[in-house]
């Protein structure tokens, strides 16, 4: 069957004395249908249309070439770092601590000490909006901690008790080098004599330490903070206790806080050395070892922080 193109756009009978008549408008509609992917580019009718008219053929080829040319992406710069830098302004970025800590949590979950020593932790950014930590005594006795302890979303890591206390972790950290800002390995005595030996920490949190320059509390403060234990991520697992030189903690070091142990876990420095410590819990690890920021949807709804709405564990002053 031959194909005859008409110059006008008026509708005509499809068949005209044996030849198929098609207007230019109809021909273009066919072309665009092919370009839209509604019919194949080699559809018989389209092929006949293009074969019969050189200008339409050129037009169609041009449109296809434009389609190809449009797939050439503009040269755009990589702005990943720029976007990441802007993210701390976002509330949900409170706990952007990074995969290393996530890995640590996973290690905790399986009790894989060997993995722990390989982890390099990077400092967590300042926890935005959580600067106002409540005093420890207040936090421990008020509604901040209790809901955390009771919260069903808190992941328990019972295996941790098997390896956490004592010098194993400290030894591992010392042998592998400490994370930036970590000086536990150099700390005399380490944690081998830590009262944490008998602890059974059951919940793992991630915390930013803000404005921290030392350990958490004196032994006498344990009663006020009976079940909070601080583990410095990166190998400094525990501060050394009242008879030891306190481990200096740099501001904003990522921390792991464990709730639910015995009352002896909030080991301390000395009264001469410590004056202000504040811990801000910003998230926890779920069963997949994934970090869940408490500032996010779940945290905001479920943390049920103190009346202030803060998720702070607290602050102590001497």
């Amino acid at each position: 069957m031959t194909l005859r193109l008409r110059d006008d756009g008026a509708p005509t009978p499809r068949r005209d004395t044996g030849a198929e008549a098609i207007s230019r408008a109809e021909a273009r509609a066919l072309m665009h249908a092919a370009l839209d992917g509604e019919i194949p580019h080699d559809a018989p009718l389209l092929r006949r249309v293009l074969r019969s008219d050189a200008s339409l053929r050129a037009e169609y080829q041009a449109l296809r070439s434009i389609d190809q040319a449009l797939k050439i992406p503009p040269r755009t710069p990589d702005i990943t770092e720029r976007v990441l830098a802007a993210l701390p302004e976002v509330p949900s970025r409170h706990a952007w601590i990074g995969p290393a800590v996530g890995g640590l949590a996973a290690s905790i979950a399986v009790g894989a000490i060997g993995t722990l020593v390989l982890l390099g932790l990077r400092p967590a950014p300042v926890s935005h909006g959580l600067e106002g930590g409540a005093p420890i005594a207040l936090a421990s006795s008020a509604s901040t901690i209790e809901p955390m302890l009771a919260a069903p979303w808190v992941q328990e890591f019972p295996e941790q008790a098997a390896w956490y206390p004592g010098g194993a972790v400290t030894t591992a950290a010392a042998s592998s080098g400490s994370a930036p800002g970590s000086d536990a390995a150099a700390s005399p005595g380490g944690v081998s004599e830590s009262p944490a030996r008998s602890v059974t920490p059951s919940r793992v949190f991630v915390a930013d330490a803000s404005g921290v320059d030392g350990a958490a509390a004196r032994p006498t403060d344990r009663g006020a903070m009976p079940s909070f234990q601080v583990a410095r991520a990166g190998g400094v697992v525990h501060n050394p206790g009242p008879s030891r030189t306190p481990v200096a903690m740099a501001a904003n070091d990522p921390m792991l806080g464990m709730l639910g142990g015995t009352g002896a876990n909030i080991a301390s420095g000395t009264t001469q050395r410590r004056d202000s410590v504040r811990f801000v819990v910003t998230g926890w690890y779920d069963s997949e070892g994934l970090l869940v920021p408490m500032s996010g949807r779940e945290g905001g709804r479920r943390a049920q922080g103190a009346a202030t709405g803060s998720r702070a564990i607290g602050e102590t002053r001497r």
Binding site: L87, W96, G98, P99, G102, L290, L291, V292, G296
Partner: peptide, 12 residues
């Protein structure tokens, strides 16, 4: 899912 939980590596 990970980014929603604050995983910076996933966000990146």
């Amino acid at each position: 899912r990970r980014a929603a939980r604050g995983d910076s590596a996933a966000a990146e």
